[in-house]
Design a protein around this nucleic acid. Structure first.
Length: 519
RNA sequence: GCCCCCGUCAUCCAGCGGCCUAGGAUCCCGGCCUUUCAAGCCGGCAACGCGGGUUCGAAUCCCGUCGGGGGCACCA
């Protein structure tokens, strides 16, 4: 082993403006690996494709990572000793590497147009041949290249792959994996416009930045041999070191292995794919897939982290509630499983509800406030009176919500001037039975009440029930519908105590007309 | 078509040759509690894809088979 004593890991997303939960899981596993080993977590933006926007679109991505608490030690905004951390700013390096690879004969110019290649692939598919590049321009002569150029064709650079032998590596989660080189066709490392492809930029930067562990999706498993090949070529003759120097970029971190020779390829851990309930890879069809959507729905970041950790990793198969600190302490990539991980939103909700029940009133109120503000129920930030109200609501809400957003319909009536009556609730609880008497008696009892507190209100309503010879159900429901407009609310007496008495009495009186209305 | 990966309750995870009449969680179904809704507590349902081996003994190892997924881009 020639790895450094503390891990250097990275999360290297293509910028897309938002963070997919799958990406978040990948980021988390890398982050946990870094934090567990007291190492360094690097954020690198892979924006080699000119068609995509850069600075702007990385913003949402970074905001989502921050929301989850996945902080990075080196990155586009924070900087660091091995930057820049945006591939679009490292073009000279890739160009230097590409040149060197070509000069050394490892890469060659290929002049086929995308259309020609597409036609070739179609043909291959029809004939049942593998669709990869057939190596048509592998050995063009200088004259042939000049001829293509003269016709105005710009070449891509392809890397020559071995014709025989096997590429093998030890994957942290899958064990030994082997590929026959004969099945790996020459691949493009530089586009016709001079930009590098992922297959070049990614391994170049991993080496240049001294990354020693790479956790990534299983979809990249079969790209690994090609990246290992690049690693190998970069190490040979100090090709990468010279290119870094040539591009004016900082030299790569030196491991404790010092001058000892040998390949310093990072170790790979290919994570099982995240799938939806239909067992297909998670996509937009499955509903929410963006971290930010889960944030808006009222999922707590520490719960998302806990849940995401469970997507592929397990500690002992029994315990599954972990704080972030516990995850940092216990996490290990070799406890990652090989089966697809089902992104089970039911389970996520259950975990979230559990966590909410652990929060103190003040903590829950704190978390609730932004959510209520987003629903326009309170100001952002809430005023002192609103804070008190939300904190008073916290204990009543705690056992009734799985996500913060679920609190909104439960308490909206407390914050609004007018009551919105639910037709079904009115029909069931106001139009039927002795609702009229109940409302009138309640209004009188509550009006005479000495103190406006939950217990006092409860006693008063019980008095009403007794006086009319009714059970609590028959009395509380009409009152509930009258005041809240719905048949479902947090416990009545305690909630009424949070509203001012005049409002409650007014609503009771207003509702009386509903009891008289014809069916 | 070729290559690679995967296969335990409905679902995820545990299991790494005997501790398994297979454990935990989510979902679902009962019951208790109850002012609605929840929460809580108690109980329940339910799995080693299939076929061959190896072994005294297999969910665990090997082979095959079937099934699922990923990849084979001038996308990452």
């Amino acid at each position: 082993m020639v790895h450094t004593d503390t891990p250097r890991v990275r999360f290297a997303p293509a910028p897309s403006g938002w963070l997919h939960v799958g990406g978040a899981r990948t980021a988390l596993f890398n982050w946990l690996t870094a934090r567990h080993g007291g190492g360094t977590f690097v954020l690198r933006i892979e924006d080699t494709d000119a068609d995509r926007v850069t600075s702007e679109s990385a913003r949402g991505l970074m905001a989502a990572l921050r929301f989850l608490g996945l902080d990075w030690d080196e990155g586009p905004d924070t900087g660091g000793p091995h930057g820049p951390y945006r591939q679009s700013e490292r073009r000279p390096l890739y160009a230097a590497v590409a040149d060197a690879l070509r000069e050394a004969g490892h890469a060659y110019e290929a002049f086929e147009t995308p259309e020609e290649l597409e036609a070739e692939r179609r043909l291959a598919r029809q004939t049942g041949l593998p669709p990869g590049y057939r190596g048509g321009h592998r050995d063009l002569t200088e004259e042939e290249r000049a001829a293509f150029r003269a016709r105005g064709r710009a070449p891509v650079l392809r890397l020559r792959t071995p014709d025989e032998g096997v590429a093998s590596f030890d994957d942290v989660v899958r064990g030994r994996v082997e590929f026959a080189w004969a099945d790996v066709s020459d691949f493009v490392i530089q586009r016709a416009d001079g930009s590098p492809t992922y297959l070049l930029a990614n391994p170049v930067d991993d080496l240049a930045m001294g990354i020693d562990t790479i956790a990534r999706g299983e979809d990249l498993l079969s790209a690994t041999p090609r990246q290992l090949l690049v690693h190998e070529l970069l190490e040979a003759d100090c090709l990468l070191d010279r290119a870094l120097d040539h591009a004016g970029l900082p030299p790569r971190p030196s491991g404790p292995a010092g001058g000892s020779a040998g390949l310093r390829s990072p170790r790979f851990a290919h994570l099982p794919l995240l799938v939806g309930e239909d067992r297909r890879p998670l996509s937009k069809r499955h509903g929410s897939v963006a971290v930010d959507e889960f944030r808006r729905q009222g999922f707590l970041p520490e719960v998302l982290v806990n849940f995401l950790a469970l997507c592929g990793w397990s500690h002992d198969g029994v315990r599954e509630r972990f704080t972030v600190d516990e995850l940092v302490a216990l996490f290990s990539l070799d406890r990652v499983g090989r089966n697809p991980a089902y992104f089970d939103t039911d389970k996520l909700r259950a975990l979230n509800g559990d966590r909410i029940r652990q929060l103190s009133d003040a903590e829950l109120a704190e978390r609730l406030a932004p959510c209520l503000a987003e629903a326009d129920l309170v100001d952002s930030p809430p005023g002192a009176a609103q804070r008190r109200l939300v904190e008073g609501l916290a204990p009543l809400l705690r056992e009734r919500i799985q996500t913060l957003a679920e609190a909104v319909p439960l308490v909206a009536w407390l914050f609004r001037e007018t009551v919105e009556y639910d037709g079904r609730a009115v029909a069931r609880h106001l139009r039927k039975g002795p609702a009229a008497q109940v409302l009138r008696a309640s209004r009188e009892a509550l009006g005479e009440l000495g103190e406006w507190t939950g217990p006092a209100i409860l006693a008063a309503l019980d008095g009403v029930a007794e006086g009319l010879g009714l059970g609590r159900g028959k009395t509380f429901q009409p009152v509930r519908v009258a005041v809240t407009g719905t048949a479902v609310s947090p416990p009545l007496p305690e909630t009424l105590a949070l509203l001012d008495r005049a409002t409650v009495l007014a609503r009771l009186r207003d509702a009386e007309r509903l009891t008289a209305a014809p069916a």
